[in-house]
Every structure is written in structure tokens, then in C-alpha cells.
Design a protein around this nucleic acid. Sequence first.
DNA 1: CTTGCGGTTGACGCTGCGTCAACACCTACG
DNA 2: CGTAGGTGTTGACGCAGCGTCAACCGCAAG
Lengths: 255, 255
Amino acid sequence: MEWPISDLARASGTTTRALRHYGDLGLLQPSRVGPSGYRFYDQDGLLRLQRILLLRDLGLPLATIGEVLAGEQDAERALEVHLDLLKQERERLDRRIRSVTTTLAKRRGGEQMTANESFDGFDHTEYKEEVEQRWGKAAYRDSDAWWRAKSPEEKRAFQDAQLAIAADYGAAKQAGLAAEDDRVQAIAQRHYDWLSGIAGTPQRPQGGPTAEYFAGLGEMYVEDPRFTANYDMHGQGTAKLVRDAMRVYAERHLS
Amino acid sequence: MEWPISDLARASGTTTRALRHYGDLGLLQPSRVGPSGYRFYDQDGLLRLQRILLLRDLGLPLATIGEVLAGEQDAERALEVHLDLLKQERERLDRRIRSVTTTLAKRRGGEQMTANESFDGFDHTEYKEEVEQRWGKAAYRDSDAWWRAKSPEEKRAFQDAQLAIAADYGAAKQAGLAAEDDRVQAIAQRHYDWLSGIAGTPQRPQGGPTAEYFAGLGEMYVEDPRFTANYDMHGQGTAKLVRDAMRVYAERHLS
DNA sequence: CTTGCGGTTGACGCTGCGTCAACACCTACG
DNA sequence: CGTAGGTGTTGACGCAGCGTCAACCGCAAG
């Protein structure tokens, strides 16, 4: 019993193109090739094809299928590994879906949160998950409620303050000042005071964010490009100066 | 203020290669190109890039991003369409995960589990009397007719879904998650949705099984060894976690 | 001047085939 | 026996989004 390529394709629910492709990859060879070059497949080929298609439907890459069929790989192991990959993919997809959903919700909410609506260059509703991960759910909730409660003028003022601070840092960097310089530390002081106005940060007994939080935020300014861009727009390396200044400030005043 | 390509790449967290790619696509042009051919980007470019990256992170194809930025497409509309695609992808992924999970389970069980006749690990024709006693004769009749009307593929899919849910509960148990944990409750949600597809259960006005039914079923999972075995095969104590998760879910969403 | 880092423009690679294109075979019909 | 039409064959491009050479040029420091 043998069939031409089209029959096999119809019987197995794929296309002739795919069958030839598998031939090219060495996954499935015809049992016989006629003098005309026509491919013919037999029973064994059909069985092999069914195994191929089964694994393919499970999403295994063709290369892996080849290894499994060749006995170089244990099918079970391959499937386990594959399952892990699939679950990771689902995680990514879910995160993405949540991001898009919240983004849409905000837009529809008409918040029009353009770039100026965000403070610290950091639209914290946009990065909800990160904030929660980094500083806890409570932090996000508090911070969010606090921000929403503000009037537009207050919001504007708050951002202006941040922009001014960033600009001053930039100027300091431009002037070649060091992080330990008193003038830079004065900016850090303002920076700290500004941050103290934000709810939802880990607080120390005397009030105001903790040293860890303040210094950690500085690290983030350098590590996270969204922040980096926001400070470095006042000059290359400003973010690093800011980070250093924050660390120095934390050491001198918060510990 | 302007930056060479590497600075922009670092500040924005992408690569120079990607930036050149965007240039080729017309997504983001340098504000200036030096006599040496070097690209330089200004503030506007940075802002535009940030918008590009934001949309890219949401998974929008670059072509669509281009249209949105060019104002040929409404961002909101594009995101809605995109969200639909993402959800379809997740569906496909979920199906695939279920398939792989059950395939693995079968291989490991080695039993070739041809048990296409049972769902929920519960062959209801075999337990006719109990079903009638517990939820009424009509329930049994409806459920039976509903099940018999399904095609083999549908039956298979339905069972696969249940097996996947059970496996996920097992994983949650393994991870030491509590019944109240959001991740466990997400599984319970799927569990509930899955059950909602079954005819013959007591329905509440909004559709879907009642709180009593759902929670009662959970009790049954623990009391009845036939059910218990079905969940505990994913790890000792899984059935109890399932019961608790179902009770929590019922309290939170169904009452 | 050399070294070394950083920039530039091609061009291929990856995944799994779909989709022409150009050409050969086979079968049935007139 | 010629021909039309269906079925095969072997290339080769295309897709999405860049990663990754390769070959060559600029620029600042020693």
C-alpha cells in the first residue's frame, strides 16, 4: 500500500508543501521516489507522519520532533521542557493582556495622562505591577489613592517641582560638581523633601522615606532606562550623579 | 540637546540595531545625520521613541505603531483590536497547554487512559443514582443528554480542560499556596467557568451554577474517594485545597 | 601613527511553511 | 496522436523583528 503525496496530505490533514518540507528537513522521507521524481509514501510513513503531527500539534519545534523520532531525545522529557516554555509564554501573554487592558481603561477613563501628567517621569499606574513587586501592594494602593486625590493644580505643581530638581541636578552635572558637594547635597535635600510628600513609601519613625528606599530609588534611576532618560535628558551622566547624590544623602542623614 | 545612537539606546533600553531598524522602517528618524553618517537624536526623538517602546511593549506590531504615530490610526482602536488578538492567542496557548499536560499524564500513567467516557474523573452514568439523589432526576437527564450529544472531539476537549485545572491545583498545592491566594482563585475561576458549561446543574439567575452547588461539589471532592483520588493524584492534600478554594470563590463571587 | 571603541551600510539567519514561478508528467478526450 | 488540465517537481521569496557577522570608516588618546 502506498500513496502519492496529495493522498497522504489529505489523509493526514496537512499540505503537500508541508510534507515536502519535512522531507527537506529529513523528518519524513518518501518510501519510494518514482523515476519522474514523484514521491510515494507507505504505511510506515503514514504512522511516522501521524506521530510528527501529534507532536507538532502539541507545539514542539520540528527540530525537537526530529530528535525525538530519532531516539536522541526522550519524548517525555521533551514535552516537560516544552510545557515549561508554554507556561512561561502564557505568563508573558497574561502580563501583556493586563497591561493593554489597564492602558485602555485609563485612556477610556479620559485621563489623557500625557507625559506631563506623570511625575518623576514615572506614570505609576502604568507600572502598577512593578511598583507592587518592588515595594508591595499597599505601597501602590496608598500612592495611587494619594495621587488621584490631588487637584490638577496640585499635580502640576508637584511635577514642576520634580522637573526643577532634575534640571538642577543636570546643571550641577554640567558644572562638574561631585555628589558629595554641598550644593548637590542641597538638591538631594529638596529631592528628599519632595519624595516625602508622596504617600505609600516605606516610612521611617521620624517620617519620610527610609534610607533603603531613597538609595534604592537612586539605583533604579540608573538601572531603569525610563528613569535614566528622564534625568539624562539634562545631560549625559546626570542619572548617575543623582544616584550617587542620593546614596550620599541617605548615608549622611538617614542612617 | 542631542545624543548619538548609543546613548539613546542605553537611555531607552533598546539596542542600536533596533534604532537603525526603526529608522529603516520610517518609525524614528534621527534629527540630524553628521557628515560621517553618524545619527543624532534630539529631545523630540527621545519622546517619540518612548511612545514607540511603550506600544511595542504592549505587543503592537511595528507597522501598526507607525500608523498610530502618523495619526492614521486611532491608538485606542488599535489597542482594542490587538487585545482581541492577544486573547485568542491565549486561548490557543491554553488549549495547547492542556493537550500537553494530558498527553504527559497519559504517558506517565502509561494507562493510555482511553477513559473518554468520564469527565471530571466522574462517569456519571456509572453513578446515576447518586446524581439523581443529590441534584434531582431532571439534573441527571439533562446532563446525560447534554453529554451524549457531544462529539468525541468536544468530549476530549472538555476533559482536557478539567485535567488541566486539576493539574494546576496540584501545582498550586505543591507551591504551598493558600486557597485565598489570587493565583488559586484564578484557577477556581476557570473551574467555575468550566462547570458552567455543564447542563443540568442548579442555575442562578445570572447564569452558572449556584454557590451551594459549587461549594457542595467541593465538599464532595474531599468526602468521596473517587473524586479525591482524582485531585490527589497531583499531590497529597490537593483535594482539600480545591475544596477550600471553591468555598472561598463561592463566598466572594456567588453570594 | 597606532590602537581601540563606536559608527555605518549591507546581508544572512531564525520558524514553518504559503505562495508564486517555471517546467515536467500523467491521464483522458477528441 | 495532439492537447488540455490536473498533479508533481525543484527553487526562491516572504513574513516579524531584530541578532549577528563582515568589511570598512571616524574619532580621541597615547
